[in-house]
């Protein structure tokens, strides 16, 4: 939760909501890019960011991204973050339709 994970921004998905698709260790996940947004959102595509709980918080270079990811793997934190992303996806599918029925 406290350590971010590097991801590469691959596409802007919703400019109005400041959302983009990021690839984190081979997993795609929509993230908020408000904190790293410049004048032109399209400039973010291809860049690496440190992502904290679904929010890109800082832009980093590719080399720093690779080193950080390796360190997070050593600590077991990268694996944990990916598991939490899967958990989040599952929560969205969970038993949640009683209210609508």
């Amino acid at each position: 939760m406290c350590l971010g994970i590097p991801g590469q921004i691959v596409a802007i998905t919703d400019a109005a909501r400041q959302m983009a698709m990021a690839e984190v260790s081979g997993v795609r996940r929509e993230v908020n890019v408000a904190c790293v947004l410049g004048a032109d959102p399209a400039e973010l595509v291809g860049q690496w960011a440190l992502i904290h709980v679904g929010f890109a918080m800082a832009l980093i270079d590719e080399d720093e991204a690779a080193k950080t990811l390796q360190a997070l793997h050593d600590l077991g934190e990268a694996q944990e973050t990916l598991a939490q992303m899967a958990e989040g996806d599952a929560a969205l599918q969970g038993r949640a339709t009683e209210g609508r029925a």
């Binding site: 993230v31 679904g54 973050t81 939490q84 992303m85 989040g88 929560a91 969970g94 038993r95």
Partner: peptide
């Protein structure tokens, strides 16, 4: 009904 999420966005 308690769910683990990765992000407040979830």
């Amino acid at each position: 009904d308690i769910r683990m999420v990765y992000s407040p966005l979830d």
